[in-house]
Design a protein around this nucleic acid. Structure first.
Length: 158
DNA sequence: GCCAACGTTGGC
DNA sequence: GCCAACGTTGGC
């Protein structure tokens, strides 16, 4: 049994919010459209079924953690890269050697209290969280077990 | 392989 | 809307 691991996934709520996920069939969605190699590597190689997910609203007012989700399907080729109608279409990616990957995530708990970026910054023990680092743009980030616990506590979840 | 130009992200 | 940070592209 591998220890559970934790991640932070960013989404712009105007595109897809935690409430959108909550209302989705089986509260589940395919996390597609990631087009950054470092994030791709995490999706393809690291995220495992059962891993915890902090659902982070970016480019939002306020930005912050809106919910908790879980990985329910590990990395698989992102279908949107092969679809000419999709914004994430990548003509250079071949089905035999896909370049981009997706996972499926299921919403698990709404936060009792939204954890704003300001609130995250106010917790010294979260100072090393990736999402707080200046210039950070990575949309898939690992979260430590200690950070996970703290953020859930700030969110009013057990 | 270098690096300038360009595009994107995301907080403010 | 601005702009810092940073990834990608392409000329050389």
């Amino acid at each position: 049994m591998v220890a559970p691991r934790y991640w932070l996934l960013k989404s712009e709520p105007e595109e897809f919010s935690f409430d959108d996920l909550w209302r989705a069939p089986r509260r589940t969605t395919a996390w597609t459209g990631v087009r950054n190699y470092q994030a791709r590597n995490y999706l393809r190689d690291e995220l495992a079924v059962g891993d915890g997910v902090l659902f982070y609203h970016s480019s939002s007012d306020p930005s912050g953690v809106a919910g908790v989700a879980r990985v329910v399907r590990a990395g698989y080729p992102d279908p949107s890269q092969f679809d000419a109608a999709e914004a994430g279409h990548d003509p250079a990616s071949a089905r035999a050697a896909p370049r981009w990957f997706a996972v499926d995530v299921r919403a698990e708990q709404k936060v009792a209290e939204f954890v704003s970026l300001e609130r995250l910054r106010g917790e010294p023990r979260l100072a090393s969280m990736g999402v707080l680092r200046r210039g950070n743009r990575l949309s898939v980030q690992p979260v430590s077990g200690a950070e996970w616990k703290l953020v859930l506590a700030l969110a009013g979840l057990s």
